[in-house]
Design a protein around this nucleic acid. Structure first.
Lengths: 232, 232
DNA sequence: CCGTATCCGGGGGGATACTG
DNA sequence: CAGTATCCCCCCGGATACGG
């Protein structure tokens, strides 16, 4: 997308030269969501190769969308942060997402489930004020997944925020959440509800009853969950 | 962009699968601007090959963004019109354009001037109420262009609307506009003004004095001209 | 942990010509 | 006017392995 340009002065096409290359919008979504470190970004775009990620980051830097900032006292370790121009791209990313939420069929989206990505998004959007003011450990068990993709733990306390583990951290578990991946993904996207999934016996909670009763509240949803679908 | 998917359920990436392929956003801009016929669309994306244009139109139709409608009494001739989902993409296109106008450097945009494209955009956006209520012929002469790209005529009357010609239609010319391509492009983009270009002797008007005096008014500008640049 | 280097294949898309 | 058909190159980007 760099040299073979559209050769149009129109601002739409000039912007499209920057935003239109593969993975760029998805990467920007992850940057807008707050990830700044290389490997955090990778978790948001897991199917993007590190080589391509590095290349895109350089391009975005060259276009003034992000800048690299040295992490204090770590030479050669950088944060990638949005510039003012990059901040304004949030509007574009939001409009793209809103349109996707409204007009892309649910079944199509739900064909692309990914347990790590879902958990990564969920951890970031936890509605922490609705969690009890002590350390909480919640284990998610995806009944239809195997081994490495089956179990996840979210740890939260008010000092350290939320952590995500894919190997057992060893703490006592306050709440177990068991369901298939599609169910939790649909809830996260605003297409289903915790209560309904439980009533339909597609989801099973066990452990702390306060925590299980408030799951729909502490489980923050996708930024687009409130946008109503216009198609099946 | 069709099969090799991002494999993310996120609405942003689902939408990006549809919008992210080369030329698609630029084509959508032209559709949003109102072109519906194949060759009208071509004028808005002159550097796109007809084969690719046809392919993209099919893809957009497949994604429910546009639909083909038979032109009355012409079998095999179609209008391409935005569906409801397509209409809502105007928001995306606008946000992309606004960002481009604010953050892409003027010099970069003005390296991509194109006389036919500029005239095609201008014709569409004429502020016709500011033109006199009779037939008007305006000839544009790009002093730095050669032969086929040098002269354009805009014809307007209240019955037939505005027409654009690149060969002399033969009518008496009410106003001659002479300047270089960059100057008119910059005015169109809101980066320059008619009065300033004249004062600087970068633009010369001759003919009907009412028409020349009101040029800044009847010359409609780019939809993004009112958005202020944030960078040089 | 944070990237870079290298290889390599597939296909996207540019160019051109042509048809109903 | 409204597209198709075809060729073919190039380079995007996926995969993997490796250095700092």
């Amino acid at each position: 997308m760099s040299i073979p340009s559209y050769q149009q002065f129109c601002p739409v096409s000039m912007a499209a030269e920057i935003l239109g290359s593969r993975w760029t919008i998805v990467l920007l979504r992850e940057l807008c969501a707050g990830s700044t470190r290389f490997n955090d970004l990778r978790r948001g775009v897991p199917r993007m190769s590190p080589a391509l990620l590095s290349k895109r980051l350089k391009e975005l830097e060259g276009h003034g969308v992000i800048e690299r900032r040295l992490v204090r006292k770590h030479p050669d370790i950088y944060d990638y942060v949005l510039t003012k121009a990059g901040q304004e791209l949030k509007k574009v990313v939001m409009e793209v997402g809103v349109w996707g939420q409204r007009w892309v069929e649910s079944d199509l989206s739900l064909k692309n489930t990914d347990p790590s990505l879902l958990m990564w998004d969920m951890r970031r959007n936890l509605n922490t004020p609705k969690l009890p003011p002590r350390r909480v450990t919640i284990q998610f068990i995806f009944s239809d997944q195997k081994s490495a993709s089956k179990n996840f733990w979210i740890l939260h306390d008010q000092n350290n925020g939320a952590d995500l583990c894919s190997i057992d951290p060893g703490f006592d578990v306050d709440l177990f959440v068991r369901c298939d991946l599609r169910t939790l993904t649909a809830i996260w996207m605003g297409l289903d509800r915790v209560a309904k999934a439980i009533a339909d016996e597609r989801m099973f909670l066990s452990g702390d009853s306060d925590l299980s009763g408030a799951m729909q509240d502490w489980l923050g949803l996708s930024p687009f969950a409130a946008t109503p679908k216009q198609v099946a």
